[in-house]
Design a binder for these strands. Structure first.
Lengths: 197, 197
DNA sequence: GCTTGTCAATACGGCGGCGTATGGTGTTAC
DNA sequence: GTAACACCATACGCCGCCGTATTGACAAGC
């Protein structure tokens, strides 16, 4: 075809790499959940057929695994490493609670993964990520002179509250809160779960 | 009954009713999630074929709907109505938090449903149930002289903590807690989220 | 310019679930 | 004892997904 371009999906004429498939998988995952990350739908979405897919990956499972490991690494770098620099533990906690208001994409992904914890590929990734996050919380509470047990319990409580809120907001969509309401809620959580300076 | 019996599934030779299918659906749901509630597997489990199923229900969706409505009614009767009788609001809250330690089956079911909130049949049921529960919490906090906004936020926080803990415990199985640890955690939550008398 | 390597299309077989059609069996009613 | 009803089996067609096999297109290297 001498024609320069058609207007369909796949506007750029470049071929696809493994990374493209992984990125597309994460997009689909965020939008419609783990089960929606299927080879043929994803191929359609990318404007090719699955003949291409199986050149890059041996199976659907392999794609999921690669995509989740990519997400895991990226998540760690963008949300937790920046917080390590905040010296004051109470302030660090407060920042953690507040910063997570933005970056919706990360929450949406995490929320979808929460719904697929029975999946053998998803489970270990989520176990690692959640473990790290809870541990981060616990360390912070330890710095605030919580006993070992209290720090553990408060960390569990705080993280449970985060996880539950995600499900209620993003999945159940029970309470469509305004920005002010949301900020007020976060304020309430901070007051309740972080001891006053 | 003339025949004593055979030892295979379906030990009793009685035929099945709609209620049997609904009960079986809830069993499967608790064990393997919403997607596992499929006609043919369920029929196999009950020792019949789907020829039977489609006499009782027009579709899989209809079964799911009926089963969930049965669960909703039963849930309301067994967990919330008994609590209405406790006059003191703080005590009522404490009892709610503690009693839910037992009755694992109810939690397991709720937890599986949380993973299927995108399903059109599941969503409205969960919206009603969760709404009622949060409202119950809010009323209790109002009785404890919380402002309207504070009561709402604290109720959201408490329920989020419940929901999140469910996912972390039952689905992620991150922390295999002993009975004492669990009780200690519940104690911590009560102290943190319910004002002292 | 011809080969090699990379990405992609097509076509195929298989599996598991949904829903339909039709016929069969036991129980109950009279 | 026969007719009506309630429940169940069998067999079928459909769809969506997985994974394989084969061939094709296009670029780079030499």
């Amino acid at each position: 075809m001498p024609q320069p371009q058609t207007a369909d999906p796949r506007a750029d004429r470049t071929r696809l790499s493994s990374a493209d498939w992984e990125a597309g998988a994460l997009d689909l995952l965020a939008e419609q959940g783990v089960t929606a990350v299927a080879v043929e739908p994803l191929a359609r979405r990318l404007g090719v057929t699955k003949g291409s897919f199986y050149w890059h990956f041996p199976s659907r499972e392999a794609l999921l695994k690669a995509a989740l490991e990519r997400w895991e690494k990226l998540d760690e770098e963008t949300v937790f490493e920046p917080l390590e620099e905040i010296a004051d533990p109470a302030e660090r906690l407060r920042e953690l609670f507040v910063r997570t208001s933005k970056e919706m994409r990360s929450h949406v992904l995490y929320s979808e993964l929460l719904k697929a914890l029975d999946h053998p590929v998803v489970q270990p990734v989520m176990a690692r990520v959640s473990q790290r996050r809870i541990h981060f919380l616990m360390q912070a509470y330890r710095s605030l002179n919580f006993s070992r047990k209290d720090a553990m319990n408060r960390a569990r409580l705080a993280y449970s509250a985060y996880v539950g809120f995600l499900q209620l907001m993003l999945q159940l969509k029970l309470t469509r809160m305004s920005v002010e309401e949301f900020d007020a809620y976060v304020g309430h959580v901070v007051e309740t779960l972080i001891p006053a300076a």
